[in-house]
Amino acid sequence: MAKKPTKNTSGRGQRDLTVKVKTARGRSTSSTRWLQRQLNDPYVKKAKADGYRGRAAYKILELDDKFRFLVPGARVVDLGCAPGGWCQVAVKRVNALGERTSKAQGTVLGIDLQEVEAIPGAEIHQLDFLDDGADDLVKDWLGGQADVVMSDMAASASGHKQTDHLRIIALCEAAAYFAFDVLEEGGTFVAKVLAGGAEGELQKLLKTRFAKVANVKPPASRADSSEKFVVATGFKGAA
């Protein structure tokens, strides 16, 4: 009679649990690599477990843990909010649903070019923030100035690293000028940028309008990504 194999309870000698994805017909090698990375990304798995719409939610969570700008009662504008993970985090942290009755109730306003599925506690609008009058619309919807303007936007990738870098810096600068129009004095601006050499002018611009400007790569940003986030606090008000 064959002897049954002994179950390994020590954890040693166990198979590598990394999910491998075979290159399927019609799927490029780069797509296969992306899919394999997604399947094995702990932040992707955690987002599903925690009910967030994407792993990016942890980036704003980690940034807020460090800088504490999403406080109860804050009025927040999320530019390019799709799919909605940053709004989900903001709703909870600013108490937009009023669940903590002892704390002030905040407001979360999501803006995007595309339609975004409703998020409890957030007001979502389909709008191009670059349109004339967009800043006035946002202030009308908020009922005043914003305490936080945040952006995880990225320009469409061209496949050329330097071109993509310049595009996202231009987009970030546009978001910064939008923030200058809608932020309350003392407010905070948070935006994604890509490292690449052209962000110096953006830093100079922000330092003229905010008390402090920091560059941060939160743990949730992939190590092989050139993305980082600028966090500008203490808005000085209208120039």
Rank of each mutant, 00 (worst) to 15 (best):
K4G: 06
T6Q: 14
T6D: 07
T6P: 01
Q14T: 08
Q14P: 02
R15E: 00
D16F: 01
D16A: 15
L17K: 13
L17T: 14
K20W: 12
K20V: 13
K20I: 13
T23W: 06
R25V: 11
S28L: 04
T29A: 12
T29E: 04
T32I: 12
T32N: 02
R33M: 05
R33N: 08
N40Q: 08
P42G: 06
K45F: 04
K45D: 01
K48Q: 15
G51Y: 05
A57H: 02
L61E: 09
E62W: 10
K66V: 13
L70D: 00
G80R: 02
A82Q: 13
A82T: 01
G85W: 03
A90T: 05
K92A: 09
K92E: 12
A96K: 05
A96R: 05
G98E: 03
G106S: 00
G106H: 00
T107V: 14
T107M: 12
V108N: 09
G110S: 07
D112H: 10
Q114E: 14
P120S: 07
G121R: 03
E123Q: 15
D131G: 02
D132K: 15
G133W: 10
L137R: 13
V138F: 03
V138A: 05
K139G: 05
D140Q: 13
W141D: 04
L142M: 08
L142N: 07
G143L: 12
D147P: 03
V148Y: 01
V148A: 08
V149Q: 01
M150G: 04
M150P: 01
A154G: 03
S158I: 04
H160E: 13
K161L: 15
K161N: 12
D164I: 05
L166K: 14
R167W: 08
I169E: 00
L171P: 08
C172T: 15
E173G: 04
E173M: 03
A174D: 09
A176Q: 00
Y177G: 06
F178V: 09
F178N: 02
F180C: 12
V182M: 04
L183Q: 00
E185M: 06
V190H: 03
K192I: 14
L194F: 15
G196T: 10
G197D: 05
K204S: 15
K207R: 14
K207C: 02
R209G: 00
F210M: 02
V213P: 07
V213M: 01
N215V: 15
P218C: 08
P218M: 08
P218L: 03
S221L: 08
R222F: 08
R222G: 09
A223H: 15
S226R: 15
V230T: 06
V231F: 00
G234C: 09
A238S: 14
A239E: 08
